[in-house]
């Protein structure tokens, strides 16, 4: 066995489990403890919350499938509409997505999709919403329950991140990071990822992406969510900075898709840069680096 570790000794794991986990490939390797327990727990709680919040949010959106800017919904001038065309018999014929007045046919995905085998008028399709059927009352309750969990998790993570210097040490981009940025963008575009010792730290693109979702997208989606509450608006007129309740709803929607985009890129990067090694490090904490540990 050629695995060594630095932060702590690698726990004894039977050979077959090591093989299954990809821990004993040929050649010298060493493992290091990449993610602390609290970070791992926060990551998975966050993943669960965001999945449920996104899908229950799409169900809530289905109750009124249009977005506006300002305080009132100016029904004649929506920003986005997921709409449905019906024939004279009342049967659904077409689903459309209208953005700033430009209409695109999106039958099967947006505006009209199959529900129990029947083409049905609905904003987002039933496979993407939670619960599957349009059920505003239930989707709202799921949404608020997991919003609380998300915020509780975030508070613990922020306190830990500041107290343990996780943010300052691991996430804050340095001036040096930024000078590497053009090079990293070129490398990522060619799917070349850092190896060896360089994989022990987040690269500049990772730091920027994580900082963007943690410090910008996260707070923004929570605050715009609260702005949609009429009681919260009575407590904090400052929430009007988002330009009104309908603007806040639109920003909330864009942030949700910002998170969805982050999720797609994040999962793609996890897979392309070594799915099992990455996944293992976010479950057990241990990340394996190929090659002999520099002495």
């Amino acid at each position: 066995m050629t695995i060594q570790s630095d932060a702590a000794p690698t726990p004894h794991i039977p050979e077959r489990i090591r093989t299954a986990l990809g821990l004993s490939p040929s050649g010298p390797h060493y493992a290091f403890y990449r993610h602390k327990g609290l970070v791992r727990a926060a990551h998975w709680i966050n993943a669960l919350c965001l999945a449920i919040l996104f899908m229950s949010g799409l169900n809530i959106f289905n109750a009124h499938t249009a977005l506006y800017w300002g305080n009132s919904s100016i029904f004649a001038h929506p920003i986005l509409v997921l709409g449905t065309y019906y024939n004279d018999d009342g049967a659904v014929t077409r689903g459309v997505t209208t953005i700033f007045g430009h209409e695109f046919t999106t039958t099967g995905l947006f505006g009209a999709s199959n529900e129990d085998g029947v083409l049905t008028g609905r904003g987002f399709p039933s496979w993407a919403t939670l619960p599957g059927p349009n059920w505003l009352a239930m989707a709202r309750q799921w949404h608020f329950a997991f919003a609380w969990l998300l915020v509780f998790n975030a508070v613990v993570f922020f306190i830990y991140g500041i107290w343990s210097r996780h943010f300052a040490r691991d996430l804050a981009p340095t001036a040096k990071d930024l000078t590497h940025l053009p090079r990293e963008i070129a490398d990522h575009a060619r799917l070349k990822f850092p190896h060896g010792e360089k994989a022990r730290h987040y690269n500049a693109l990772q730091k920027l992406a994580y900082c963007f979702v943690i410090f910008i997208l996260g707070p923004l989606i929570v605050l715009t969510g609260l702005t949609m509450s009429p009681t919260m608006d009575s407590a904090f007129p400052l929430l009007e900075i988002f330009g009104g309740r309908q603007s806040a709803r639109t920003i909330h929607f864009l942030c949700a898709f910002g998170f969805f985009g982050f999720f797609l890129v994040h999962v793609a990067m996890v897979i392309l840069s070594g799915s099992w090694n990455n996944l293992r490090s976010m479950i057990t904490g241990w990340y394996v680096i190929r090659g002999r540990k520099p002495s």
Binding site: I60, A63, H64, N71, S72, F75, P230, G244, R245
Partner: peptide, 12 residues
């Protein structure tokens, strides 16, 4: 005042 419907729209 702003009337907020549970469906998501608002009217003043």
């Amino acid at each position: 005042t702003r009337h907020d419907c549970v469906e998501g729209w608002s009217c003043i």
